[in-house]
Structure formats: C-alpha cells, structure tokens
Design a protein around this nucleic acid. Structure first.
Lengths: 338, 338
DNA sequence: CTGTTAGCGCCTTCAT
DNA sequence: ATGAAGGCGCTAACAG
C-alpha cells in the first residue's frame, strides 16, 4: 500500500482541468519565468495552476531533459572534495545552485590527469550542461578536448596558460606579496618558501608574489624556495626546517595550508617556537590556529565569492539564456589576517 | 564548427550495423553485466559491440531514466558537507558509487529540520532512487514521510528512535566508554563531558558510554555532563573550562571534534596545559593534533567503512536487483588513538 | 534465437 | 486562444 504512489503527470492535470496537455505544459513553463501569461486565457491559466497545486504536480526531469537535450546539472571537478577549502566552496555552490533548479555533481582528481580524464568522461556521458574544473598538471589537452566538444567550462582556483577559458581565481600573487611584506615589516629578513614541485598557476603566482616582495624590499639574495613532492613531503620538510633552524632562517611562507601544517609540525617536533624562531605566513585558516593562538599571518580566501562567481559564470554559459557579459578572468582578493 | 556534435544514439548503431534498435539495446545492456550473450547470435553481438565502440556510443541517461523510471542517482543529506568527517565520507562515497554507474547528490541540513524537509523535497522531485540521511533533531516525521512515499532510506551516523529503517552508525557508546576508561587508567578521576543539548542518538550514546565507564569504575559522583547550545557555545565553554580549572577538574571528554577545538582553545587562552592540567578525549582526528603533538586520546571513525557500508545498503535497496540480506543496523567500531 | 512495437513524460510545431 | 500529433532515445513486452 505504501508502494511508490504514481507520480502526477502533465496528463493528469490536463484531464482534471479539462484542457490539453500542451496548454498545461505551456502554463507550467511560464509560471516560473516572470513572463506574462500572454497566449493563454488568464482564467484557464489560473485554473491549471490550481489543479497542479492541488495534485502536487512536479515535472519529471528525466522527460524534460530528454526533450530539451539539457539535464540541468553542472559537474564540479576539484582536486579533493574533502580538502576543507573545496569542501566549503562545494557547500556554497550547492545552496547557490539548488535554488536555481540546477544540480551539482562533484568529483575529485587527486591532482592526477588520468583521473581527471576519467571523471570528465563520466560527467560528459551523464550529460552535464557545464563543467567547473580545478585543473591539475598536464590537463591542458583534456580540458581543451571537452571545450571543443561544446560543453562550457569554467576554471576555478587555477588557470591554464594558453587556454582561452573563463576562470575564477585568487589574486595569489598579491596575497603572497602582502604577507611577505608583513613578515619583512615584522623584522624577518631571510624568508623561505615551501611550495610544491607542481606547475600550477596558483602555486607559481604565490611563489612569484613572495619573490616580488623580497626584491622590491632589496632582499634579493635573502630568500629561498623549496619545492617538495606532493606525495612524499614529510621527511623533506622536516629536513628543510631543521637546516633552516641551524642556518638561522627567519621566516617561512607556505604555499598551501597542508604544507603549513606539515611545516609547523616539523617545527614543533624540532623544538622551535613561533614566532620567536620562525615567522609564519600561509594560505587558509586552520582550526589549529584557533586552539593554539599561534602568532602567524594567513590569507583568507573569500570562499562564498569563489562559489558565487564560479556558478554565476557557468550558469551564464549554459542553457538557452546566454549571458553576453561573461567575465573571462575573475580575480578575487584575499584578506590578510594575523 | 565546434558546436556540440550530435550524440551517437542507438539508432545510429542499428543503422550502421544493419540490425534493429532493440537488438542493440539488448546487447549493450548485457555487455556490462557478466551475463552470457545468450539470446543473441554471438557474431551479431560482437558486430554490434564493434560498431558501438567505433562510433563511441554512450547511452543517453535521460532517456534511460525516463523509460526505466529510475534515475540512477542517490541523494546524500548530511548536516554539513563541509564538516571534515562528512566531507571525507562523501569523497569515498563518490568513488564507491561512480564505478557502479550511479550518481550522488549532496545536501546539507545545518541541523535544521526545515532545511532537511526542503532538501528531501528537492531530491525526491529530482527523482533520486534512494536517500542517505543524517537525521537532525525533530526529523522523525520528515523521514517517515519519505519512507512512506516508497523511496528507500538509509540513516547514517545517527539513528531515529522508533523508525524501522536501516542505519549505519558508530559504536559511539563503546568508543566513549573506552576513551573514558583510558583517562581513568591514566589517573584522571574527575571527568567532565562537553556535549550538545541536542537529542541525537550519537551524542546521547557518547554521553552514555562515558557514564557507563565512570559508574563501572566506582566513580559515580565524579562526573559531570555539560550540554551547550549548537549555535552559541563560545562563551559557555570558556566558562566551563575556567570553572573546571578552579575546581580542579581533571579530564574532559568532548562529544564532537568541533567542541574539542573550542574547548582546547579555551584551555589555551586560560593558561592551562594538556595533559598536566586537563586530560582530553575526543572524536575524530584534527590536523591541530599533527602540529602540536598534543597528548590526547581520540576515537578515529572508520570513514571508508561508513561510505562503503552505507552505499552498499542503499544500492541494495534500490533498483531491480533487490538484495535480500540488507542489514538493519550496521555498527562500526572506532579505533582509539593516543 | 531474433526482431518489432509501443510507449515512458514532456515539449514544440502546426492546425484549428 | 487552444488542441492534436509527433518524437526526443531507450527498453520491456511481445511476436516471429
């Protein structure tokens, strides 16, 4: 008896209201848009809406998708959805998009182009109308392919050099520059950066911003950039910190939050103290900062903005109502917190 | 010219291979299942598969969903997808499910039954085949309703008393009991718990496990449970910690990781030290533990297991291949780490 | 063992 | 201003 009760269809409404299916379809489509109910008698229209309401009509999205050739879904492919930054962006995207009747599908690449290719494939086969991609290394071809297949793509967090695709990124160079300047202002004059050995625009920009600040401050020979492997950095970072301690390295800028956690862990275990032994600047907040009122500087990325701007961008590209004014490169500013 | 190239359909294959659409459909359906290609001439079948391969055929899922009356999507509703625990579970669910050809939709309730109702509604309208729900307070009716509508539901992380629905949860009572016992073993004899004033089975079980351990250890009058509001606990926790310090409270068990972070923050700012002033036990790992090699005990939840068991359960309930042996209450064990 | 038929629910001309 | 009809791509039930 509790069998899934048959869903109400457009046909039921038509019968109940004594009109044709086509009319119902028409009225329902124009209900949500603010458009006038031109082309249909106002009374008839209202009557149809009432019946639909009474029967609790909900359109069958599969049927609609089949007919329209659009599924109303957006694929979002990040490097790791369980990374706090992306998890929070995803969270905001959800809210943003559900209210517009779209659906988001999430996927993670683990910075692996093979996985990216696989997920893109899955999403395209599922018929996503648009794609948000956080590109990993060596993903130019994959992304180029999917663009050429006609599916709108928006890049997030990182750009891909040479591809003419809309992107939403942080002003990483400036954030990094600003934090480095603050470190210098606090009296640190030898600064090291721990970064990944990956060719990602956000990473490179963060490195560059630090270099800019050092050079501009006349500290050209006083910085060093360490690039560690994304997979096995534990031992390496321990060593870097140890050597820095011996050399009397003064401050560290970490290219990512994960690296900062790793580095601070090394420092703690090495018996070093913050900010006495090392000044610290990094990206993104971490609840550890909350526990131990560590005296460090971090760049807070505007998460809601990332979600909002990115979705605005894809949704503008998707569907029948083309936006004319899709911004190519949206650059968001970080807030420097200490 | 880069217009979205028309998708290859079953019809194209039929024409190209010189057979009927139905045959193609049949062969394609049986390709993925390990089933013998009985019922169809082997040569014909192979020929069809070749052509499909050559044309890079991908079935249109909207059409399939319309025809089958199932969409191949599972809705997963947690309290907050950006909470690290749920984010990681979600991550594993993705992987688990994509390989089986399903899709997951995520939603967050913020512990608000009104939001739960809204999201359930959205997901049901979207036609999810099954639902995974982390029930919040006062969600009995909502969950009961959706069950009666015929959509399979599996509860995760928490149960709902009185509802006969499959669930996948942690053995919270035992984890809490074990951690409390360890604290007692370390010489702490007055133990306080900071918990939420919410009627959630996981929270209640965690409280009960601690009480069990205290009573069993003959420390009946030596514990205290503080229940703070989910929304504004900052000041409250500060005060609890301060008073505990004055009274000489010995150890804290935190009902959630968020509360632990809050509590440890209060302790730090109050000038207390761990484990000298306070022993600590909590749930879930936090990267802060990694930075500051804090001497505490925590219960590590088996995240991959949560994802795997939960998905196994919904997928067994969904679709045409009913599993007979759906376990009603799957209880996972935590690993106690210190 | 193989092929045909009849829709699934919706939307979009086209005819009235 | 409204209705009738056909078809999106696929599959289940039905012949052959």
């Amino acid at each position: 008896m509790n069998a899934r009760r048959r869903k109400v269809t457009i046909k039921d409404i038509a019968r109940e209201a004594g009109v044709s299916q086509a009319l119902v379809s028409f009225v329902m489509s124009n209900k949500n848009r603010g458009e006038k109910t031109y082309r249909v008698n106002e009374n008839t229209a209202n009557h149809i809406l009432e019946v639909a309401e009474k029967l609790d009509y909900q359109p069958n999205l599969s049927a609609r998708a089949l007919k329209r050739g659009r599924t109303g879904t957006i694929g979002v492919i990040v490097s790791d959805i369980s990374n706090p930054f992306f998890a929070e962006v995803a969270r905001d995207m959800e809210d943003e998009v559900y209210r517009k009747g779209y659906t988001v599908l999430f996927g993670s690449t683990d910075e692996d182009p093979a996985k990216l290719r696989r997920i893109v494939r899955v999403f395209v086969d599922k018929g996503v109308d648009g794609l948000v991609i956080v590109p990993c290394q060596h993903s130019e071809d994959i992304i180029n392919d999917v663009c050429n297949s006609g599916i709108p793509v928006v890049l997030m967090d990182r750009r891909v050099e040479g591809l003419d695709i809309p992107s939403v990124t942080l002003n990483n160079r400036k954030a990094s520059y600003d934090m480095t300047m603050r470190l210098i202002g606090k009296g640190y004059h030898f600064i090291e950066m721990i970064s990944y050995d990956m060719e990602l625009t956000n990473i490179k920009d963060r490195e560059q911003g630090m270099v800019d600040a050092m050079i501009e401050s006349g500290l050209d020979g006083y910085y060093k950039i360490h690039r560690v492997s994304h997979h096995e950095h534990r031992q390496v970072v321990d060593n870097i910190v140890k050597e820095a301690g011996e050399r009397g390295g003064e401050a560290f800028v970490f290219a990512t939050n994960t690296l900062a956690v790793r580095g601070m862990s090394s420092m703690f275990r090495g018996g070093f103290h913050i900010p006495q032994d090392f000044g610290i600047a990094c990206f993104d907040y971490n609840s550890a900062f909350d526990i131990y009122d560590t005296d460090l500087i971090y760049a807070r990325q505007p998460i809601e903005m990332f979600a909002a701007k990115t979705m605005e961008c894809v949704l503008g590209l998707v569907g029948p109502d083309y936006q004319e004014d899709i911004p190519m490169d949206t650059v968001l500013e970080a807030e420097i917190v200490e």
